[in-house]
Simulated assay, not measured.
Amino acid sequence: MEKLRIGLIGTGRFGRLHLRVLRQLPHVDVAAIADVYEPALRSTAQEFGIGAEECYLDPLELIKREDLDAVDIVSDEQSHGPLVIAALQYGKHVIVEKPLSVTSEEAHAIRRLQAETKRQVMVGNISRFSQPYYAIKRSIDNGMLGNVAAIRSKRNFSRSWFHSFGNRVHPVYESGVHELDLIVWYAGCRCLRVSAFERNMSGYVHPDLFSAVLVFENGLVASLDSSWMVPSLGPQNLVETLELDGTIDAEIEVIGDKGTAKFGLAHPGFAIWTDNGIQHPETTLWPTGPDGIGGAILNELTHFINQIVKGQSSPVMPLSDSVHVMEIAEAIVEAARSGETVQLGSGQQ
């Protein structure tokens, strides 16, 4: 088959990870890259041997290229919605890093445009492609857990990372969407109402932590706690492939009337002890193996390409779920601000 030509928007640390994985796929040609920050763009072009004529400081100029089949958007959160809309308007398939957008209005606009253009739109909610989380979904679908009554989840990040996000985006759109996406996936129905609370400890525009309780159509009750306050000596677990000096401490528990499923990301059973401390390398998201980068990131990008070839929307990561996650995220922000329970609509927009 002919190679799919993809343009990559965003050449930061995670954008370069996407680029490395896309280059492993036999039927993909990363034909152009874009970034509004010129030093990152030029550095990435030099590292990967990409010519100057294939580099763009304006992502819209990349999107307008007629020889591209798809775009991979790995830019800052505020740009996601507008760039996805532009890509669809120019007939491109899209994979966009989470979140889909930062407003439900943009999310609904994307859903309407996707229905009109019949293009593939997939959000990079990587947890759905990670084996432990996927196995929990299987245990729900095959009845092993029985009727699911409750979901408890948390996701905590290193305090040092919040300097980059505290004035940029509410943490519900950065850390919270991971768990919200899993909760929506596992619940299998719409959320009806949301209560939430938050606290600002660092003095940034956005809070360091928030807690939310969600009630779904089928009666399922879900809780989500998220903070950016893990201390500097927390277990280092992002030391495989994409090295970040810090910790992701995530746990989820799905409780049914026949069984319970649990997974904790911070202590997967693998440890390295040195004079400099203890590491718990995370091995499900993007581990490097003998044939390159594997894990969830490879599964996610391979699935995106396969669905384009098949001409089918993703059964694993349907756009409707991502739109609903944006509705819930927006409701959490409002509920925490107002101190009132927020009722969600029917979703017929």
Rank of each mutant, 00 (worst) to 15 (best):
M326I: 03
A335Y: 04
D291G: 00
I305N: 02
E334N: 13
G345I: 12
H324N: 04
E334S: 13
A336L: 06
I308P: 10
M317A: 15
H303D: 14
I297E: 09
E300V: 10
H303W: 11
V333W: 01
Q312T: 15
D321P: 02
D321F: 07
Q307H: 14
E340G: 04
I293Q: 03
I297R: 02
G294F: 00
E330P: 12
L301A: 02
I328E: 07
A296Q: 10
N299W: 03
G345R: 08
V323F: 02
M317D: 14
E300I: 09
M326A: 08
G339H: 06
G292E: 00
A329F: 00
S314P: 15
A331R: 09
V325S: 01
G311V: 08
H324Q: 12
V325Y: 00
E334I: 13
A296L: 03
K310P: 00
A336N: 07
V309L: 11
G295V: 02
G311T: 04
F304A: 04
V342P: 11
G292I: 00
A331V: 12
L301E: 06
V342I: 15
I308Q: 06
D321G: 07
S313D: 15
A335V: 09
R337M: 08
H324F: 03
I328D: 10
S313K: 13
A335R: 02
A331F: 08
E327R: 08
M326G: 05
Q307D: 11
I305D: 04
A335G: 10
E330T: 15
I308S: 02
S338R: 11
N306V: 10
L301M: 05
M317E: 14
P315L: 03
L319R: 09
A335C: 06
E340T: 10
M317P: 14
H303F: 06
T302D: 05
M317W: 03
T302I: 02
T302Q: 11
G294S: 14
K310I: 02
K310H: 12
L319A: 00
D321L: 14
L301V: 03
I297D: 04
I293A: 06
M317Q: 14
P318I: 01
H303Q: 05
L301T: 03
S314N: 10
N299C: 12
Q312R: 15
L301Y: 10
D291P: 00
Q312E: 15
A296F: 01
L298T: 08
D291M: 01
V342D: 02
L298C: 05
G311K: 04
A331S: 10
V325R: 03
I293M: 01
E327A: 01
V323G: 06
E327C: 07
V323C: 06
T341M: 14
M326V: 05
L344Y: 12
S322F: 02
P318N: 08
